[in-house]
Design a protein around this nucleic acid. Structure first.
Lengths: 196, 196
DNA sequence: CATAATGATACGGTTTTATATATCAACATT
DNA sequence: AATGTTGATATATAAAACCGTATCATTATG
């Protein structure tokens, strides 16, 4: 049915999820109904152009028409440029990187696969979400145990505790982020962009 | 009404006109109704996403979502790359240029202002539309009389005849251009009446 | 465990899109 | 002068979109 517009609506969903925004929050920002959004994302219904623009704007996206022949060049810009601003402290970057490498080799150490996935997901987010100094300490502290995994491998229970702690930090960061780090994201308030 | 989507639909119309395509032809290529297209372009109604995509495809355009922050870069691509590729023979370029200069000085020689305008319009198009060799001959032949305007000024009737001939060449070029240069633009035709 | 948040659905009701078809005035073409 | 083409409209009808609201199963969270 909505074969022609599938990629667009799919992109909408991807953008929303990338911003960790719920359908209900997007609903509030865009003026569309949550049920409406769900159906659009699922392909159950095809949005009107107006709805698409509303949803897109709420996600900091623009609906544009581009000549086919220019698409390669545009695509180049679109997926080469990393999306987030990456204003992390080098401390955070290093720590996340270290944990990342650790995880690559020891994911099997977790109690369950889902727990490992949760941990990985937390890491993925903390790679992009800046953490305030104090929380960085908590983060460091929570994962300090992993530094000694070599000569003293942590038990699964210890790992669970650590993963849970990291998860909490992630959650805190995500929630604070919406209003603090990405405050001028969507709204129609800032119509004024820089000039061309 | 359709304030949010005005620029998009406006762009649609601009693209269609730039390709010298009539609403009826776009209708045939896109599957939409001519009346539908008219209303969309006028802003009387807001198209669904499906309709927009259909119309866009028929015009060799793509509907895409782009992050706002990347818009400057994209806009750069969009309007830096100018119009058509201009693959004219040097013969055609020269001839058009000469006629252009001639016209700049002798537009008053035409029978009416509108006839002069028509001639200018034809020239403007032939500056960008490549002409096959045979037609170039016809073109040259039709305007040969102007080469002797100096010592033997052509009558208004002669001018009318020439202008008309040039106009015909222009028309043929436009039609051929649409069917040749934009052959694989729209798939809508293939779906419905798939005649070879 | 209890609670809250999430996404998927459902349904009745209003509004809008979209089609099919035709007409019309303004031009363009032959 | 006769004929085609163009874009704007009109009307009637079918088909969706869109909203409100509400429910439900999962999953996340405290």
């Amino acid at each position: 049915m909505a074969y022609k517009t599938e990629h667009i609506t799919q992109q909408l969903r991807a953008a929303r999820e990338a911003q960790k925004m719920s359908q209900r929050e997007l609903s509030a920002r865009s003026g569309l109904t949550q049920s409406h959004i769900s159906q659009i994302e699922r392909g159950t219904m095809e949005p009107g152009l107006g709805s698409l623009v509303d949803a897109a704007r709420a996600l900091d996206l623009e609906v544009i028409l581009a000549p086919k022949k220019l698409m390669p060049a545009i695509r180049n810009i679109l997926d080469s440029t990393s999306v987030s601003t990456d204003v992390l402290t080098s401390d955070q970057r290093k720590l996340v990187g270290r944990l990342d490498r650790w995880f690559a080799q020891h994911r099997g150490a977790f109690a369950s696969a889902s727990e490992a996935d949760t941990f990985k997901d937390s890491l993925a987010l903390l790679r992009h979400l800046p953490l305030p100094a104090e929380e960085m300490d908590t983060f460091k502290e929570a994962t300090a145990r992993l530094d000694r995994w070599q000569d003293d491998p942590p038990s699964r229970q210890e790992l669970s505790r650590i993963a849970h702690a990291v998860r909490q930090i992630r959650n805190a960061a995500v929630h604070r982020d919406r209003d603090a780090v990405v405050p001028r994201s969507a709204y129609a308030l800032d119509e004024e962009d820089d000039n061309a």
